[in-house]
């Protein structure tokens, strides 16, 4: 093994401190007894209790959950389809352009995505509300889904689909009965990714939202402008918890299947 040099240790510590110290402070202060954010006055969970009684926050949380759920489902369907076409269709005219365009929103500044969506919705006369936020989130989340799913599809053995066709499946049945169950872990982690992305999006949502469709990040942002309250700390802590659980589940889903498979294969080799 390589020696663990001082330089490595220092940069690692600094990097992680940089990443996580602010969050740790936030989590700690969410349990602060005092209303003043900067003064520690003992441990308490009372802000969580108050949070639960805050109708506005609860309403925003509910909107956010709905938006995240519907947009991630839509994004998963569209993103998986896009990935399938890009990986499978082979060479067709404009393939590079098409696949490039799928990934472009990944690097596009959110402000631009948000603004252009806003212009589109105004242009077609769509009233802004939950629907427009869902559509907007779908648009940018499907790029992420298609990246995740297409990286799985690249290593997918095509002869499995051909075997399904050979055994009498129509192309759609082959996809539903063979391809989809096999790439399911990638699709699920794509969905979780889309869900968390939607959950914490502020910029695009604020461009496309309308009356009655205030999402939690928008609510938090506007509340913070009036001053940081321990209630918001508590809320943020909960959001961190949810996102963490989501991300960890996503990686576990794909990793566990691989580990289990490797173990079974070793067992089969031994049994031979």
């Amino acid at each position: 093994m390589r020696r663990f040099s001082w330089f490595n240790a220092t940069s690692l510590t600094l990097g992680f401190a940089f990443l996580y110290l602010p969050m740790i402070i936030l989590v700690i202060y969410s349990f602060n007894e005092s209303r003043l954010v900067t003064v520690w006055a003992g441990f308490s969970t009372k802000w969580y209790g108050e949070l639960i009684q805050n109708e506005e926050f609860l309403g925003a949380a509910w909107v956010t959950a709905k938006v995240a759920f519907f947009s991630s489902c839509l994004a998963t369907v569209l993103g998986t389809m896009a990935a399938y076409v890009i990986v499978r269709a082979g060479r067709f005219k404009g393939r590079t352009l098409f696949s490039g365009m799928i990934y472009a929103p990944l690097v596009m500044p959110e402000v631009i995505t948000g603004l252009s969506l806003l212009l589109l919705f105004i242009g077609i006369g769509l009233d802004r509300g939950i629907l427009t936020v869902v559509l907007a989130h779908t648009t940018f989340a499907m790029c992420y889904v298609s990246v995740v799913v297409s990286s799985r599809l690249v290593s997918f053995d095509r002869s499995l689909e051909e075997a399904a066709l050979d055994l009498g499946c129509s192309p759609f049945e082959a996809f539903r009965l063979v391809t989809l169950p096999i790439i399911a872990p990638a699709v699920i982690s794509g969905w979780l990714l889309a869900f968390t992305l939607s959950l914490d999006d502020l910029v695009i949502a604020s461009f496309t939202t309308g009356p009655g469709a205030t999402t939690l990040p928008i609510k938090v942002f506007s509340a913070v402008r009036l001053g940081v309250s321990p209630e918001i700390n508590a809320l943020s802590t909960l959001m961190i918890a949810i996102v963490t659980v989501g991300v960890i589940t996503a990686s576990l889903v794909s990793k566990r299947a691989a580990v289990q498979q490797a173990r079974d294969e070793r067992a089969a080799e031994r049994a031979e």
Binding site: D157, A164, L165, D166, L167, L177
Partner: peptide, 30 residues
Amino acid sequence: VPPNKRAVNMMFQSYALFPHLSIWDNIAFG
């Protein structure tokens, strides 16, 4: 005639067994 309508079956070079199905379901698939 598309492959799913031919009275021809193929045993693939890589076997192409469906990894998510049991042996029983693999054989029953067709």
